[in-house]
Computed example of a mutant assay.
Amino acid sequence: MSKVSIAVLGASGYTGADLVRLALSHPNIEIAALSANAKAGQSMAEVWPHFAMFPALPRLVKAEDVDLAGVDVVFGCLPHAASAELLSGISGPRIVDLSADFRLKDAATYADWYGNAHPAPDLLPGALYGLTEFARDDLPGADIVACPGCYPTAVLLGLLPLMDLISPERITVNALSGVSGAGRSLKEANLFAEVAEAVAPYAIGRHRHMPEIEQELSLRAASPVMISFTPHLIPMNRGELVTMIVETAHPVADLRAALDKRYAAEAFVHLLPEGVGPATRMVRGSNHVVLNVFADRIPGRVIVIVAIDNLVKGSSGQAIQNMNVMLGLPETAGLSAAPLFP
């Protein structure tokens, strides 16, 4: 396939805009349609000044007015519930959804954590959980791909290769995320004066990404897994760092060997040299992941640390990576840019 026609639903949000940014450098993508209900009729440059030099981008329309004729892939960058309700009515194009609507396999679990009945429960069994490095074999046959959340992406990449070596009963995750992870809508808690010079935990003990992480870890462990998870908002635009404390009877060298074996051939996931701590500045603006494992001073414990860009590998970059694999394109197409530094 030489050219892929895409539509981006929800292009006025951070994930939608970053997907457009990445798509512009993809050698196979043609952007056919962009939607944003509240901004319908405006150009992308009017909503996002950094697109001023791309006047040929389609103007924003309401999602229901998007012409899907000839569109190969629809990227859903909409809020949960709204995404499934709209995407469930689409037939023809393949769907890569960046919301939470198709990540959880159980509709009752979704209702419990998201506060409303699932809009399209009949589609859940056929939706593929798209953590690319672990879904690669199934992506070519998928019609609906659910992109993992940003926190689950980081946590699962760090822990899935280690589940045979660690105790699944004792997993503690402390996570830090930039403000863009909360979306672009106006919220008092995200005002500059509220977040600058401060770090604060939120959704303590009940973050919506917890059941998603537990679902995938449980599948890997073949038994129920529950985690302790505490996210924190930090005063930066983008980036995410997760620190995970796990218990094991194995030396840290065994865990490091497992990570090295699993990711040695991966284009985007990188085990750092021994003793080097992952940092968000190593991956900013890119689809790359850096991780490492360290011995704790408490016997039987190790510390696994992972850094990603929440808007790229944690969202739009992984969505394009999934599309590449779905369509038989080079997996790195449109995603080969080095991280931004400083």
Rank of each mutant, 00 (worst) to 15 (best):
Q215W: 13
E214Y: 11
S223H: 06
Y263F: 11
V96E: 09
G70C: 10
A307C: 06
Q321W: 14
G314V: 08
A264H: 06
I213K: 06
A333D: 04
D18N: 11
L191G: 12
H80E: 10
P140S: 05
M244P: 10
V276P: 04
M210E: 12
R103I: 12
N324C: 03
V145Q: 05
E133S: 04
A265V: 07
A52Q: 10
P152Y: 13
P55C: 01
G334I: 15
Y114A: 07
A117W: 15
P121I: 14
D254E: 06
A111Y: 03
A36C: 03
L160R: 03
V293L: 03
M210C: 11
E274H: 15
G275T: 04
D67G: 09
D18E: 12
E169T: 04
L9T: 08
D260V: 06
G158E: 04
C147W: 11
L162D: 02
A221K: 01
L19H: 01
L124K: 13
H118V: 10
V4G: 09
P79W: 07
N190D: 12
A32D: 00
S167G: 13
Y114I: 09
S167C: 15
V289S: 02
V306M: 07
M53V: 05
S316A: 15
G183E: 10
G239A: 11
A142E: 04
A120D: 15
E197L: 15
S35W: 02
R206P: 00
V293P: 01
G70Y: 11
Y129N: 03
A265W: 07
L186D: 15
L219T: 10
K62N: 11
R281C: 13
S88A: 15
F229E: 01
G115S: 14
F134Q: 06
A222S: 01
H80P: 12
H118Y: 10
E214S: 10
L219E: 10
A142K: 04
P93K: 08
T243Q: 13
A40C: 09
R284E: 07
I29R: 04
A117Q: 15
A56E: 12
M53D: 15
P79F: 08
T153K: 01
A295M: 06
W48K: 06
L165P: 07
R238M: 10
A267F: 01
L233V: 12
A253S: 02
L255I: 11
G317S: 05
V293S: 00
M1G: 03
P251Y: 12
I298K: 09
A81Q: 14
D112I: 07
P152M: 14
L123I: 08
I95W: 09
V225C: 00
L124T: 14
S167E: 15
G275M: 04
A40D: 09
R238P: 00
R103N: 13
G16H: 02
A222P: 05
I227P: 02
S91L: 10
H232Q: 02
L22M: 13
N190Q: 12
A258H: 06
V179P: 07
V145R: 03
S336N: 13
E331Y: 10
D137P: 12
A258K: 05
R220N: 07
H26I: 02
Q318T: 15
N292L: 05
R103S: 14
V155L: 05
E133L: 05
N292F: 00
D137Y: 12
M210N: 10
F51I: 12
M210W: 09
P273G: 09
V66Y: 13
R208P: 09
Y202W: 03
L327S: 08
